[in-house]
Amino acid sequence: MGNKSNNLLLGALEMLILKALAIEDRHGWGIAKRLKQISNGTFSLNVGSLYPALYRLEKKGFVKSYEAISEKGRDARFYKLLSKGRKQLEDQQANWKEFSAAVEAVMLSDG
């Protein structure tokens, strides 16, 4: 099952998705748009990674999908963050802070 760095990246993607869903339920397009927006265009999510990630999250029980009408009046599939997902997000967020702080400390040192 891949290697460690892959897992880290995959984990990061899932964390970002969960984060995007933390405030409100969104559809896939909404998630992609929201992430792009917050990151000032840095995270332009590829469809090929977004949806598989969503399905994985749903399978793990972190999110739940349901059909609803989009803001533009069309049928769309929305994703809702479940409590298990919220817990996961909190854990990951804590880990991430630690991790990024560590990376930062290393990168800012004189080497």
Binding site: H27, G28, W29, Y51, S70, K72, R74, A76
Partner: peptide, 12 residues
Amino acid sequence: MNTEMRFHLEAH
């Protein structure tokens, strides 16, 4: 799944 992606595409 198909509709969902089509929705994504069209929204884009």
